[in-house]
Design a protein around this nucleic acid. Sequence first.
DNA 1: AATTTTACTTGCAAATTGCAAGTGCAAATA
DNA 2: TATTTGCACTTGCAATTTGCAAGTAAAATT
Lengths: 146, 146
Amino acid sequence: MQVIYAIFMKKAKKRSDCPVSTSLDIWGDKWSLLIIRDLMFAKECTYGDFLKAPEGIATNILASRLEVLEENRMIEKLDHPDSRAKVLYRLTKKGIDLLPIMIEINLWAEKYFPIPADRKEMLKEVKKDKTAFIKSKTKELERQGD
Amino acid sequence: MQVIYAIFMKKAKKRSDCPVSTSLDIWGDKWSLLIIRDLMFAKECTYGDFLKAPEGIATNILASRLEVLEENRMIEKLDHPDSRAKVLYRLTKKGIDLLPIMIEINLWAEKYFPIPADRKEMLKEVKKDKTAFIKSKTKELERQGD
DNA sequence: AATTTTACTTGCAAATTGCAAGTGCAAATA
DNA sequence: TATTTGCACTTGCAATTTGCAAGTAAAATT
């Protein structure tokens, strides 16, 4: 499986064998985790949805990040049920598994910066039972089709 | 405290109020988390130590990342006990608090890539009791002086 | 049939990165 | 004491990446 995939993946210019370095080679830039964030909060997004995010990613950068994330099997494309002109993007299991990292980033940020109320609400849930939150959110994101 | 520090911090060109975005504005590039990693594994590092890391960071990039991390109070400089020509870098509490993120990155990577044996050993400890591991490692990193 | 929406691509300027070669001070060596 | 070496950076420049604005093609709407 891994071998077969590897054929299609762009040469990852791996900087070292360190797992942190290898991870950053895939999603360690200013934009990728924001794309992942959008998919975790909205479950599915169109190209236009990503463009609407408050950070204002440039369209060519978005296209290039989506390409890299797809090549590395973090996200996948889906037919939009309503229109053939639209494309739905969704997290793969590999992408969903970034959830613990995403949560820890939010928790860290909450400790050192003021954060929006709705995000604070979510973290309240997280702090009640982190394991349960991850399990349930993962299940939610994993559900196929709809 | 926060306000006073803010005066000295370079304008952070915050892209949005999202905690993920705000975090990435500080350390969301290809190199910063590797510097943090080195400090977590070695506790204290000199400029030269960072340069020796297998990823091979360029010296000017290193200098610029260290500057940003210091401005944002993630790391701090220390006099080297052996020589005034050397500088020790150490994590602040804010930097040490990235430990849960660092651990989750390692756990994610372990699930999807082959990772070095020594790192796998560490993760074995983590998986025994994550909370305990973080607590003890944090204490270790917090110890002043030496 | 004409317009709008959607997902991109393209061209180019600006910013960032990476390499190689300095620089300046401290420490070790002759 | 003079000289060399080590260490923490800085500087200059080429190459890559980013960001902005405009364009394109197919599909949906009017």
